[in-house]
Nucleic acid binder design. Sequence first.
DNA 1: GCAGTAGATTGACATCCGTCGATATAGCCC
DNA 2: GGGCTATATCGACGGATGTCAATCTACTGC
Lengths: 125, 125
Amino acid sequence: MSIYCIMGVMNPLQTLDPAVDASCCVPSAKPALSAEEAQQKALVFKALADPNRLRLLSIVKGEEAGESCVCDLTGPLDLGQPTVSHHLKILVEAGILHREKRGTWAYYSLVPGALDDVAGILSAL
Amino acid sequence: MSIYCIMGVMNPLQTLDPAVDASCCVPSAKPALSAEEAQQKALVFKALADPNRLRLLSIVKGEEAGESCVCDLTGPLDLGQPTVSHHLKILVEAGILHREKRGTWAYYSLVPGALDDVAGILSAL
DNA sequence: GCAGTAGATTGACATCCGTCGATATAGCCC
DNA sequence: GGGCTATATCGACGGATGTCAATCTACTGC
């Protein structure tokens, strides 16, 4: 935790407090996953576990400029603007998307390496 | 689909019916993700979006024999046997775990390459 | 067959989550 | 300032999801 809570947002993609890993010195075969680690990692997958959020990611990723504003995202999905905003918030809180407000518009872009980090979680299970 | 439905189980990790991809011949920049594709891919992440299921995977993966029986899984988690059975079923239906019954016991093992396939979904978003 | 055991299934319940309409906030332009 | 637009937040509602106790199924061994 520590500094990652300053923004009032807990970012699941940040590495866990090393203290929980203090059961080190084990050959590496057994630690399994503590309840806390599991809950933390599950947050990222929860963010990915919705069809509409996957589509949002797909659209943002496919955008040549690397970013999309909300107005470009409400169209393709059959969802209202508040719902899209809600999904985007979840993706931002999961550390997958980055939000930048310029003037009246909000632009969303993929956090570099975020999806790779998720893949890393899988291989490190 | 085809043979994968013989068991009465739809395996989300199998590639989608190519028909949905028939909007080919697009340079490759735009297809985004159709609603059907998104729903299909979300199933796998739904299966991973629970702390206890992540712990189950972690335990099975860490087992030297490559498989665990249910009795080895109910202990570490603070869950009743029916609940563990329920979670295991979800992981099997997602194509991540394989179930083999030998005698009275049921052994669960990772489907080879399943987690890599999930990583592939991410990079192909 | 009978008792015992491992595991799956069912049904109920509480909680979580996706969605919407309504409203609030914030920036632009006249 | 006042109207306008883009986006976020709130409150409510219905459906999905995790959990458990109780029950069922299938195998083992006597």
